[in-house]
């Protein structure tokens, strides 16, 4: 594939403070516009890996995001740049939606980028439009359904206009129509996507390539159906 690599990871190792080795030499790349699925058993290091892509965790090895290297010594400016490039959508939307109203919450990211409140609100409205939540501007996050929360969380990330979307278990707590809507929505988004998930049919609807994690290492990589077959990764 000739598209530029937006994420390029080589030999990433990470050990938790309690001594557990979570990542043990991971090589990975994601090209612009590509959609990749990340599979692996519970505890194989998928979420830990996702947190590295945004500089929330920093391990040994090299992580480059849109050409910017992420190391322990990364400058505050570069870190802010990376965080605006990589949008991380967390597994539990309640973690992400902490402000009292939907509009404020979605505008939180753009405001952190240094935009004025008006600009941030304008961007938030566009993002909410994109995810079909424009009608919920002044609602409180805890009055939303799981599907709506997921859409607002996604809007909160899109409002930062990232180049990469990393979605951690995006289908958790979504009913089948909600999953269908999410697939349709993600198809319309031009960003490169990494789907961290157990849901193979969801991944198959979006991703062509898949990476399989085992005990903190990449155990296999290739076409999605091939990986699913090789690791018996279906029900």
């Amino acid at each position: 594939m000739n598209a530029p690599r937006v994420i390029d990871v080589r030999g990433l190792r990470y050990r938790y403070p309690d001594g557990t080795l979570a990542l043990d030499g991971v090589d990975f790349h994601l090209c612009a516009g590509e959609c990749v699925a990340l599979f692996g058993a519970n505890g194989s290091g998928k979420t830990t890996f996702a947190l590295h892509l945004n500089g929330l965790l920093v391990g040994e090895g090299s992580v480059r995001v849109c050409g910017v290297p992420l190391a322990a010594s990364v400058s505050a400016g570069d870190l802010a740049l990376v965080r605006s490039k990589v949008g991380l959508v967390f597994q539990d939307s309640d973690d992400q939606l902490f402000l009292p109203t939907v509009l404020e919450d979605v505008a939180f990211g753009p405001a952190n980028l240094g935009l004025t409140p008006e600009e941030a609100a304008a961007r938030a409205k566009v993002a909410l439009e994109q995810t079909g939540m424009a009608g919920a501007l002044h609602r409180a996050p805890y009055h939303l359904s799981s599907g709506e929360k997921r859409r607002v969380a996604l809007a909160g990330v899109l409002a930062m206009q990232p180049e990469v979307l990393v979605l951690d278990e995006p289908t958790t707590a979504l009913d089948p129509p909600g999953q269908r809507d999410l697939i349709a929505l993600l198809r319309t988004l031009p960003q490169a996507k990494l789907l961290v998930t157990h849901d193979t049919s969801f991944a198959a609807a979006l991703a062509t390539r898949a990476v399989f994690f085992e005990r903190g290492r990449v155990a296999g990589e290739g076409g999605l159906p091939e990986i699913v077959n090789r690791f018996h990764w279906s029900r």
Partner: peptide, 22 residues
């Protein structure tokens, strides 16, 4: 949960102060 919230905030560029309310 608090750790998760903080992580999600940092992921969206939070660098230590909350925007003042308009």
């Amino acid at each position: 949960r608090a750790d998760g919230i903080y992580r999600a905030m940092a992921a969206r560029g939070f660098h230590g102060t909350f925007p003042a309310l308009a």
